[in-house]
């Protein structure tokens, strides 16, 4: 079981829909939204709960639109 859980928050107005974050996400968490932002770009969005907070998407994002969060999951001890 995963011991970390990540989340991404995309600044949808800043995203230009270049799709560079999609292939670098090993968990296939990112896809382009069917909606448009005010500039007319399909922005990136998180589509599942598999994100592990690796920050790959944020590193390659030219517009710095992605903020990455990560928490460690507390495992209960099994006696």
């Amino acid at each position: 079981m995963a011991t970390v859980k990540g989340e991404i928050v995309v600044n949808t107005e800043r995203c230009k829909g270049c799709e560079l974050c999609v292939p670098v996400c090993k968990e296939k968490t990112i896809a382009m939204s069917a909606n448009l932002n005010s500039k007319g770009y399909h922005f990136a969005s998180s589509i599942n709960d598999d994100c592990n907070g690796c920050t790959n998407c944020a590193l390659v994002c030219p517009d710095g639109a992605i903020t990455v969060y990560r928490v460690k999951l507390k495992e209960e001890k099994v006696n």
Binding site: K5, G6, A58, T67, R70, K74
Partner: peptide, 19 residues
């Protein structure tokens, strides 16, 4: 273990690993 929800993760700024 308890898995926090998306809202719980993103409301705490200490969880930010990249911004």
């Amino acid at each position: 273990s308890y898995i926090p929800t998306r809202e719980e993760i993103i409301e705490d700024h200490d969880n930010v690993v990249y911004e």
